[in-house]
Simulated assay, not measured.
Amino acid sequence: MTRAASTSRAPRLIALSSAALLTLGLAACSSDAPAEESTSAAGFEPIVIEHALGTTTIESKPERVATVQWANHEVPLALGVVPVGMAAANFGDDDGDGLLPWVDEKLEELGAETPVLFDETDGIDFEAVADTNPDVILAAYSGLTQEDYDTLSEIAPVVAFPETAWGTSWRDMIHLNAEAMGMADEGDALVTELEDEITEKAAAYPQLEGTSAMFLTHVDTTDLSQVSFYTSHDTRAMFFEDIGLTTPESIATATASTDLFALTQSAEQADAFSDVDLIVTYGGDELVTALEADPLLSQVPAVANGSIVNLPGTSPLGTAANPTPLSISWILDDYLELLGAAADNAK
């Protein structure tokens, strides 16, 4: 549906872009404009960022920052910048206000009103993005198509994912989005701060060190003939290594032949996961019961030993297992406690 939206709205956006450029051009030529305005960005060096969908050049320091798709707005917020528009939360939003709790808390801390929230239920709302009149659009963690990117680029410079759709680590999300804002040094400092926090808190759970873990996607307990799991390209699985867990060889091998962030495998090949000590997944007690009762999946060491962390998938707790700049600090203590208990069973 996103592609269809891209095609139908592109002509209007091009027209909007042209009108905006004409307006800006006339304003720049006005003799009434103060001289200092034309030199306000004199010290700014143009930023050139290469990514999977092209090369983006940002000629002047962005003042109005918009973000699309998941969590990109958390970078400017973490750096004290309130976006003019951002995607509404469509997963894990337990109170229905379009904001995840760590985002709500940050806006309150900054004394800021809620920005324009883009409804991305059916894809990017290009017209809503254009209406916020952004100077830059951040999407370093995203699944933008080339068509999405081209359409958004008619509005403002866009920073897309560096290599793999939905495969940008939280570090690279911060680095790229911060760089696009002209705040690379601040982004580096934020990464260091979060790394130090993770290292300090994970040290209290030595049982995690060297324990192999896989992340199952949402499991259908009525049909366990297939199992789906996140590959090492997915940020949930990447985060395991940040906290001392290791990637099973079975997952690493499966990942090596694809750029997808999730794969599905027949339960008849469950013996391939004989190197999995711990499983994280979304579900409840009924999921654990189903896995333990299944004649094939029950043989996976993590299942046999009861080393399963089953997160409530639609809650903030389950959502935050996908690490983002603001959610890491919000979830880390609870997440480590759950993982530590499961790792105890694996030993």
Rank of each mutant, 00 (worst) to 15 (best):
E163H: 08
F118R: 08
E200I: 05
Y335D: 00
N310S: 15
Q146A: 12
A290L: 02
L338Y: 06
L287I: 05
P248R: 00
P101C: 01
S6N: 11
T281Q: 00
M181Q: 07
D234E: 13
A346F: 14
A89W: 08
D271L: 10
L296P: 05
M238T: 03
V65A: 05
W70Q: 02
M183D: 12
L287N: 05
L194V: 13
E197N: 06
N133T: 12
D196N: 13
A89V: 07
F239G: 02
A140K: 03
A88V: 09
S257P: 00
F240N: 07
L296W: 00
P206N: 05
S153F: 12
A28T: 10
E197H: 09
A71V: 15
D223W: 01
L291H: 00
E109F: 14
A4Q: 13
S30M: 15
D125I: 11
A346C: 13
A341L: 13
G54Y: 05
V81A: 11
P312I: 07
G306V: 05
L338Q: 06
V75Y: 09
I251R: 06
S8K: 14
I328W: 03
E105Q: 12
P325M: 03
E109G: 10
D275N: 08
E63V: 15
I124M: 04
L332W: 07
K201T: 14
M214Y: 13
S212I: 07
D104Q: 03
L24P: 00
N305A: 13
E127C: 09
